[in-house]
């Protein structure tokens, strides 16, 4: 498994994504897809779920390709299609090899991000299940009044936001009861290492990207 610090990984992926948005190199895009897949393969992270995402992306891909061929240029079609897959691969390489916890701890320890954001984010992530339960409750409450709330109904969102606000308050209360305070210093049981090798790996990857954009 080739490891790289989660924060450095996130920044590298964001830089690559930003760069390919402004360049028009089909080969670079294909290269990103290939290297991304190689990375996933080495780390043994090619799952059914990942393949499904790629499969679903065929729908917009075909759309873009057809419309560019009919109303634009074929070359632009190729660039947009490969770019789309490059974005998806970048996203997969990051999310499939990093857990929320690893990212959170790294953002806190390596990037010194305020703990309020890091733990608020991680806590919020765990609340998703409760909010889902609440949405089921809200839908049933509507059934009792002979109303069918669809996923586009404004009332559903209004109520879901209300319940999310309530959970946010409860979460902050719960975290405080376990000693959390945004200003206080915290010790770190699991240290997330940030070594020189992480920087060199990131630099290497970005260097290859520049070479491929400029020379190929």
């Amino acid at each position: 498994m080739i490891l790289i610090n989660p924060s450095i990984k996130l920044i590298t992926v964001l830089i690559i994504a930003l760069e390919i948005s402004f360049t028009q190199s089909t080969i670079t895009n294909i290269l990103i897809v290939l290297i991304g897949f190689l990375y996933l393969l080495i780390n043994n992270k090619i799952t059914w779920n990942a393949l499904l995402i790629l499969l679903l992306a065929i729908i917009p891909t075909v759309g873009i390709f057809m419309s560019q061929n009919m109303y634009g240029t074929a070359a632009m079609g190729n660039i947009l299609v490969t770019r789309l897959y490059a974005y998806i691969t970048l996203g997969l390489t990051f999310t499939k090899t990093t857990t929320i916890q690893e990212l959170g701890l790294s953002l806190e320890q390596n990037l010194k991000m305020p703990t309020k954001f890091v733990y608020g984010f991680m806590g919020g992530f765990n609340l998703i299940n409760y909010v889902k339960q609440d949405i089921a409750d809200i839908k049933q409450a509507a059934h009792f009044r002979n109303i069918n709330l669809h996923f586009w109904s404004p009332s559903l969102y209004f109520k879901a936001i209300l319940s999310a606000i309530r959970y946010a308050e409860l979460l902050s209360e719960g975290m405080e009861s376990h000693g959390f305070s945004e200003q206080a210093y915290r010790t770190h049981y699991k240290k997330i290492a940030l070594n020189k090798s992480d920087y060199s790996k990131a630099t290497f990857i970005l260097l290859i990207l520049q070479i491929s954009i400029v020379f190929i």
Binding site: Q101, N126, L170, H178, G179, F180, A184, Y189
Partner: peptide, 29 residues
């Protein structure tokens, strides 16, 4: 108890709490 947990696993919640209380990392385990 649902409203008192911020983390996803039992161990992580215990670590989170003990880190907040500034317990030395080598004692946490």
């Amino acid at each position: 108890p649902n409203y008192q947990f911020a983390m996803s696993t039992v161990e992580e919640e215990l670590i989170f709490t003990l880190e907040n209380l500034q317990i030395e990392p080598n004692l946490i385990g």
